[in-house]
Design a protein around this nucleic acid. Sequence first.
DNA 1: CTGCATCCGAAATGATACTG
DNA 2: CAGTATCATTTCGGATGCAG
Lengths: 137, 137
Amino acid sequence: MPAKLLHKPSPSYEELDPVVGALVDEVIGRVADKWTMLILEVLETQGKLRFTRIAEAVPGISQKMLTQTLRQMERDGLVTRTVFPVIPPRVEYELTTIGASLGEAFCGVWQWAEKNLKKIEKSRAKFDQHAMKATKL
Amino acid sequence: MPAKLLHKPSPSYEELDPVVGALVDEVIGRVADKWTMLILEVLETQGKLRFTRIAEAVPGISQKMLTQTLRQMERDGLVTRTVFPVIPPRVEYELTTIGASLGEAFCGVWQWAEKNLKKIEKSRAKFDQHAMKATKL
DNA sequence: CTGCATCCGAAATGATACTG
DNA sequence: CAGTATCATTTCGGATGCAG
């Protein structure tokens, strides 16, 4: 995917436009959510899915959080929610164009996580070990 | 982190290696944190910085969260923490190689956020408007 | 099946005060 | 300056019950 990305356009957009900067931060804050990322990932790799399928595909998520996160994503225009007027209900979720583009953007982060897992674990172990000596436990 | 629920394993990479999958999720969960991303961004664009400078550069962060997030990032090997034995204290934080690489990975998300800000706001307005009509408030 | 509403304990976060 | 400690508050997230 994104092999080599340019660095951020301007040095510090906040400096140039504090208002827009705050808004970007807000969006980042919302989008940089664990469940959002996991759901995004699932919808990206598996395409259109209905509620229960997503629940199964996202380990550890509760029905409440799933509903909540999906609503938020729908509100932000990341996914479409299609309700089929049948009994029992059938609701399908699918990434929008903008949602898919976010998925692509996150792709780099995912690859990073997989690639650097080992290093992180090592770093943690080392850090914790030193912390041991520092404390009198 | 959420404990095990009544879900069967995800058919994605988790199926191939549930253990690694869970760990990746854990890392994602930690790294996909609002403050982590914001601090990462600041250190990436402004280089080596001391505590107070970061606090100023990250709008809305509390000193508690700053300390906490920086500690976590240090533990994960994303930043180095250099303490100068002087009075008053001087502590500088700088991205490590791996930290910088995460910054690059996040770059795409940042550009996405800036690029799609308007669309998101429109989508939200539209969504909220429809929600209005649906409710009798 | 796909939710929404409510309750409630747990965890995250903010505000404030204090320290080397 | 760069934290740590504490307390109040908010938010998170799971369990349950119910509706369309």
